[in-house]
């Protein structure tokens, strides 16, 4: 009985850990992966970033406070039919899903992530911010290189149960799981390729497919970056995907 009480209390304690911890990412320069004449290294001023991805428990608070973002109420233009499909119901992650209360929320659209950020008085990171933050070397790392680690994660199927936040590595800035747990939305997730409506635009030549995809990149051997940009390039704002979540920033 006591044990049950304690584990329940523990679970409870885990659910409410959302302390909105943010860390400072120092100012830097970001070399865009796809190089164009207008795409020179750009300065990235210092900003604050969530130390972990937004969890299911945290996102539940948002849904409770914003009924229009409940699974049954959400506008399909803003979230496809996979929106929060791993939850038990509108306002419950589900007793059976206890293990993922503290795991990153996934199956959320760009619009949902953007709305959450606004509700928190934060923003989604730009590609420049996200890439700058993720470049920081890992602390206490068993892999010989970060790219190696990322590639190993990319080439393994999704786990059956998504691990909790802080289950991979922490980087020099103090950020957890920038790689190895989920993909993350960025504010301008597909701005690096010409839109489908801008045919004839020079940018259209930079599409990230076939061998042409390697013509104008800053580091051809960075397969991890290729994978990330290909992934981002295939997204639309209402897509909800089982390995795609987000974290927020504050300028």
């Amino acid at each position: 009985m006591i044990i049950t009480f304690f584990s329940a209390a523990n679970a409870q304690k885990k659910v409410v850990i959302s302390k909105d911890e943010m860390v400072t990412v120092p100012a830097g320069k970001y070399q865009p992966f796809f190089i164009t004449p207008n795409n020179q290294p750009i300065p990235v001023p210092s900003f604050k970033m969530d130390e972990t991805a937004v969890t299911n428990a945290e996102f539940l608070e948002f849904v409770k406070a914003n009924p229009q973002w409940r699974r049954s109420k959400v506008n399909r233009l803003f979230a496809d039919t996979n929106y929060l499909r791993h939850w038990q119901s509108d306002l419950s992650i589900g007793e059976a899903n206890k293990k993922i209360y503290n795991s990153p929320v996934v199956n959320v659209s760009w619009f949902a992530a953007e709305a959450y950020s606004k509700w928190k008085n934060k923003k989604l990171p730009t590609i420049a911010q996200w890439e700058t933050a993720a470049k920081a070397p890992p602390r206490n790392f068993k892999y010989k290189s970060l790219t190696d680690f990322i590639l190993d994660w990319y080439t393994k199927p999704n786990p059956k149960v998504l691990p909790n936040v802080k289950s991979t590595y922490q980087n020099e800035y103090g950020l957890y799981d920038m790689n190895g747990l989920i993909w993350e939305w960025t504010f301008n997730f597909n701005s690096f390729i010409g839109s489908r409506d801008s045919r004839g635009n020079d940018e259209d030549e930079l599409k990230n497919f076939c061998a042409g995809g390697a013509l104008n990149v800053s580091d051809k051997s960075d397969y991890a970056a290729f994978l990330r940009f290909s992934y981002r390039g295939s997204l639309k704002g209402n897509f909800c995907i089982a390995n795609l979540g987000f974290r927020c920033v504050k300028n």
């Binding site: 199927p157 599409k207 497919f209 290909s230 390039g233 390995n243």
Partner: peptide, 24 residues
Amino acid sequence: KMSHSIDLHAVIGPGGGADATATA
């Protein structure tokens, strides 16, 4: 985990279909 697409060498058109098939 990945996005995928297809280039069929039997296609005459952008990327052999790859332009139209970046699929999340």
